[in-house]
Amino acid sequence: MSENMIEIQNVSMRFRFANDRILSLKEFVTAKLRGKLTYQDFWALKNVSFNVKKGEVVGIIGGNGAGKSTLLKIISRIMKPTEGAVICHGNIVPMLELGSGFDADLTGRENIFLNGAILGYTKEFLESKYQEILDFSQLGQFIDMPIRNYSSGMMMRLAFSIATLVNPEILIVDEILAVGDEAFQKKSYARMMELMSGGTTVLLVSHNLEQIRNMCSRVVWLEHGNVRMFGDVQEVCDAYSL
């Protein structure tokens, strides 16, 4: 169980803001010609390093603008860090926003395959999991309806089912778990616990310290892009809540 699943090595992320946001060629050229193209650097992350071992559930806490979401995006390879490297040994399923890969005009069934393909799964694998996803989402006959007719709760249930039932090796979660009605919330919470105990490595961002205390084994505390503290859940949470 000591195998590193995610290695984060000296990751820094710089955002450059042009003083005016330039979206047209004309603006770019005129600003460049006038020499007014100045940038403001903003380091969202500075020299962040930590490792996550296989099967661990690591919480990430910190105030607004601490760099939590940026870090998750870098780990999910959506963003490329300005400096440093992230090495992941496994298939990542990012749950940054549920249902982001859905197409409203397709049916639920078609969306399962589309979303599954986006997450990197094969056809055979998705076919074998299809029934399980359908059962878990409790959509029943609605599965063959275009999802533009779904309620938001149904959509979330479907998205959650796809993301968690495929047994990801690394699950990246940004503030979720409040999905669907109370019964489904309980079910999804149970499913998350099951995943975590079943060997899935989880990175979890939450403002809910209670949740972090319950679910995580270790916690990273980010502050202004720096790792303020990294360690045992109780220790960091106690320090954080002070």
Binding site: I74, A85, I87
Partner: peptide
């Protein structure tokens, strides 16, 4: 130190 973000070594799908 400007390394490329390395691709995950394994593409392991479930099993």
């Amino acid at each position: 130190m400007r390394k490329l973000l390395k691709r995950g070594k394994y593409n392991s799908i479930s099993d």
